[in-house]
């Protein structure tokens, strides 16, 4: 089975790198973008299986990106997982209404992130392998 492809859209380059390492180690193929405009072109070119999307982005925010992606053919049905440090009480509903399948509030657990991605991919939920689990993280 070929590895599922995840597009990470995150303007914090350090976090992007960390997520990249984590998701590759879990067995996913990753592609990334650091601003709203390149996010859309990368998404259309790569056609990922899941998109992990930050809200605060240069050149337009995550909502603009979601609006474009959900209305364009190759990505209209791609599940989007929103990750943000912004207040869930103000942004969670808005993100879900805009078409996100899940909303993760930073800082999130790796288990939480990986379980959400698996669910978005429609993969059976299973625990991460024991050596990849870190307590309380």
């Amino acid at each position: 089975m070929t590895a599922k492809k995840i597009l990470i859209i995150e303007d914090d380059k350090d976090l992007l790198r960390g997520l990249n390492v984590r998701l590759r180690a879990t067995g996913y193929h990753t592609v990334f973008a650091t601003d709203a405009i390149s996010a859309i072109s990368v998404a259309r070119k790569e056609v990922p299986d899941v998109i992990v999307l930050d809200i605060g982005l240069p050149c337009g925010d995550g909502f603009t990106v979601m609006k474009r992606l959900t209305s364009l053919a190759p990505t209209s049905a791609t599940p989007i997982v929103v990750i943000t440090g912004r207040d869930p009480s103000a942004y969670k509903d808005q993100a879900l209404k805009a078409g996100a399948v899940a909303f993760l509030h930073k800082p999130f657990d790796n288990d939480e992130l990986l379980a959400t991605i698996r669910e978005a991919l429609g993969e059976p939920s299973e625990k991460t392998s024991p050596e990849l689990r870190t307590p309380n993280a």
Binding site: L15, V21, A25, P107, L132, T134
Partner: peptide, 27 residues
């Protein structure tokens, strides 16, 4: 207060991610 606590979250996510990357032996 609200702004500060949200702004502190992003760098903390990165810190936790890299610590767990080290602890999980990914580096």
């Amino acid at each position: 207060l609200s702004h500060v606590s949200h702004e502190l979250r992003s760098p903390l996510t990165t810190i936790q991610q890299f610590i767990t990357i080290m602890l999980d032996g990914l580096a």
